[in-house]
Design a protein around this nucleic acid. Structure first.
Lengths: 229, 229
DNA sequence: TGATCGTCAATTGGATACAATTTGCTTGAT
DNA sequence: ATCAAGCAAATTGTATCCAATTGACGATCA
């Protein structure tokens, strides 16, 4: 069997996270355990474990005896997440200016090329790539702890954007990504951090309206196809 | 109802965490689900959920079909945790210099008095209080996300100290805590951060010069030379 | 008519039972 | 004596089952 080395819980966890980040599951949407389990063809136990993790990551909230919901970060919460993200990402930049690995710039530029390939489109792929750039930066520091935290706040920011931003329009984002790379390459930490601050500030700045939801089953059935074993 | 508002999972989670931090459960120790559940009078389901969270917090590691163990951070991991901790705590200081809440200094000084009360003793209480000072600092920023992350790295540092440091002897620590408070009160962020860096550096430094047991690979590679035949 | 209380369906919280996987040990052959 | 193969015990992975809590609808009474 080509069975995956990972557990079912991991699979469901990843799928749900992906669905949330890509805005298929919108903030506030209910996530009943048996509905989800039914759609994915697994038992409630699995879904529960996945939901526990997602709650820990701040992507879902659970109310006692009420069930799980996709998180709806308030503006205050959003502010707090962005504050931590700035702190972490500035440190990432600082560290990379000291110890960028040899193949670091190649990997970064390859990623930017990917981003440019989907430039202009506002789809889920664009959102995912924009986030992954920052995670890649964190990875290059060689610090898994830092990478995990950056990963979490970036994911939460994606969720926040889906709530408050009217458009991801990553045009400027990609440009700024390139600028950050160049500033790091020049060893100019101050400038790189400045751009990053501006970059995040611009992202945080966009905060306006949202849209209306879709049925849970249809969404999950779409994502569940990957689980067909 | 005198029933607790929290769920059983939370209780077990807290208990296990406390036990790990206080070194009742030592690094590397096995945590079989049914044994733990038996001891606490709950089912495996609960223990499992708690273990999932603890793994997410980096206090336990789980191996597929092998079970959960109290984490044994390598020196590299320790380094990574300390690196993130410096980053986060420096930001805490920076934020507090801008917006310390009105009763902040009172709470901080009350805490330091507690620490001084157990000064000299190397028991679990001393370890816990030393960590809680830093969590309290983070709380005063009013940022729950930041507080959670600081909390996590501080806990992991406690675990690391229990592995590598020969003594917590928090004599200097308490002094430095007071110094940090005063620097913040003076609005001197640079000085406060400097003290914090020194404080954490001292803590991390103690971890360096302690016992030796680390990665299996290094041990095996050392002993393996004698086997090369 | 409106508010309050009681019953009921829905859903989660928790426990138990079963299956799959790993590990250690025994046993046998070289 | 060493090593390999296979069997058995222990432990986790997963599913199902029962109980407890919540929210809503509807009946009753002021």
């Amino acid at each position: 069997m080509s069975e995956p080395k990972t557990t079912l819980t991991d699979a469901v966890h990843d799928l749900l996270r992906k669905a949330i980040i890509e805005q298929a599951l919108k903030p506030g949407m209910r996530l009943p355990e048996d509905t989800v389990g039914e759609q994915f063809g697994v038992s409630r136990t699995i879904v529960r474990h996945a939901l526990v993790r997602l709650e820990h990551e701040g992507l879902v909230v659970t109310r006692r005896n009420r069930g799980a919901f996709v998180a709806e970060p308030s503006r205050d919460e959003a502010q707090h997440v962005f504050e931590v993200r700035r702190c972490l990402e500035n440190d990432v930049i600082r560290l990379l200016c000291e110890r960028m690995p040899s193949n670091g710039f190649d990997r970064l530029q390859a990623h930017v090329r990917q981003e440019e390939a989907v430039k202009g489109k506002d789809g889920p792929v664009s959102i995912r790539l924009a986030g992954e750039f920052h995670v890649l930066l964190a990875e290059l520091t060689g610090n898994p702890v830092l990478t995990r935290y950056v990963s979490e706040v970036v994911l939460r920011c994606s969720l926040i954007m889906s709530l408050y931003a009217r458009s991801h329009s990553s045009d400027c984002a990609v440009d700024e990504h390139s600028q950050i790379i160049e500033a790091i390459r020049a060893g100019n930490a101050a400038r790189a951090i400045g751009i990053m601050e501006h970059h995040l500030g611009a992202v945080a700045g966009r905060a306006e309206l949202a849209s209306e939801p879709d049925s849970i089953q249809s969404i999950l059935s779409h994502y569940g196809k990957e689980l067909a074993s």
